[in-house]
Amino acid sequence: MPMQGMSFSSLKKHTALIPLFVCVGVGCVGCAYYCLRLATRSPEVAWNKKGDQSPWNYYSDKQYKFYSPNIDYSKLESPAPKY
């Protein structure tokens, strides 16, 4: 018989598999989300030659990191003078 737990009916019979699916699922989704965020939002990644070659300028007043222990980012702005 095919592996138990891969279809809904067999899953109801083996309820102990549910936390396993939840933990593995959260891990996979979290990893995929983080990698996509790095690829698309990181200040050091530029994908094509025609696009913006200085993606870091986008962050001159925004926060990139998930969490910042001191709230400095609220009154943030890049100190470099504009010319």
Partner: peptide, 15 residues
């Protein structure tokens, strides 16, 4: 053979 309760416990506790 299988026991659903203990399987539940030893998946949740390591997590």
């Amino acid at each position: 053979l299988e026991n659903q309760t203990i399987e539940l416990i030893w998946t949740i506790m390591p997590a």
